[in-house]
């Protein structure tokens, strides 16, 4: 097996809990992401998803453990890891275009201003922003448009790893749908490795190659990695008819609904907490046809890495 593009090894995060003790958010989390893979991480609030994201972005230091990307250990933030924050994090005194140019100029300090502008405009056009709108300040844009600018800023820099922290969490369902489609469209043309936090199961199935499932905290762990066995390109109105769609979806709902609690809460000692790979594929001929409960063990092919 080749060395994975991104590998998270024995990552532990503890915070003081205010009463003199330490609170372990997650312990010895170990997982990997392949190059060009789109991975979503699903879990309840407080399970440490955002903390993992901050560690990957280099904005937070883990208590222990390492993250290796492309053969190098991560320390501190880098232009190789682009971040799209939940609250857009656009600089409010700059126009949409200038916000993207801010990122592009940081990535390519040797470019001329016109090159930076042309590159930025291209990426804004890719997320459907052009004309007058790109000269507006973020406060004059809708939430959806702001997040588009933020996505354009991240994609324009061609980071090796793109980190999306609940990018659509603050948007209404309709806007979320359009921007998800746009994200897929851009991503299809790139081979960009993406790591995304989400609360939305359908969003995760639509976008991801693999979904990491986290149990509840404290002592949260990445318990399962569910492969999405639905071929690309995916369209939201087509994938729901795919035989695997509801099987996967039911599995995820069951996990978040009950098993995330059952599996939560204990320190697991010093061993690595690697996720169990789950592959659900109804289209394979040799799958025995049984009841519809996807959590049923006979129904699943569990492969330990």
């Amino acid at each position: 097996m080749t060395k994975p593009f991104l590998s998270v090894e024995l990552l532990t995060q503890q915070f003081p809990d205010g009463a003199g003790d330490t609170l372990t958010v997650f312990e010895n989390a170990t997982f990997s992401v392949a190059e060009g893979e789109f991975v979503c991480i699903l879990g309840h609030s407080g399970c440490g998803k955002s903390t993992i994201m901050n560690v990957l972005a280099g904005l937070a230091e883990p208590t222990s453990g390492t993250v290796i990307m492309d053969g190098e250990e991560i320390s501190g933030p880098s232009l190789d890891r682009g971040v799209v924050f939940q609250n857009y994090s656009l600089l409010p005194w700059l126009s949409a275009l200038k916000n993207v140019m801010f990122g592009v100029a940081a990535r390519h300090p040797d470019w001329s201003k016109s090159e930076v502008q042309a590159h930025s405009e291209k990426y804004l056009a890719m997320v459907g922003l052009d004309g007058d709108a790109i000269h507006r300040k973020p406060s004059q844009l809708s939430g959806g448009m702001r997040q588009r600018v933020s996505i354009a800023r991240a994609f324009a820099n061609h980071p090796k790893l793109l980190l999306l922290d609940e990018p659509f969490g603050a948007l209404d369902a309709l806007t979320r749908g359009t921007i998800q489609d746009e994200l897929l469209k851009i991503w299809n043309g790139t081979n960009q490795t993406v790591f995304m936090i989400t609360h939305d199961i359908d969003e995760a199935i639509l976008l991801a190659d693999r979904i990491l499932l986290m149990t509840n905290g404290p002592f949260a762990r990445v318990a399962e990695a569910v492969e999405i066995t639905i071929p690309r390109p995916r369209r939201r109105e087509e994938i729901i008819d795919h035989p695997n769609y509801y099987a996967i979806r039911n599995h995820l709902v069951h996990f978040l609904g009950s098993r995330s609690k059952e599996l939560a809460g204990q320190s697991s000692g010093s061993g690595a907490n690697s996720p169990e790979t789950i592959r659900i594929d109804r289209t394979e001929k040799d799958t025995p046809e049984t009841d519809d409960d996807p959590t049923h063990q006979a129904h699943l092919r569990a492969v330990n890495e």
Binding site: L59, P77, L79, F85, A106
Partner: peptide
């Protein structure tokens, strides 16, 4: 801190 984080992730 979000804006400072933007600067940090852009290696300024």
């Amino acid at each position: 801190s979000d804006w400072v984080n933007v600067a940090r992730t852009h290696e300024l």
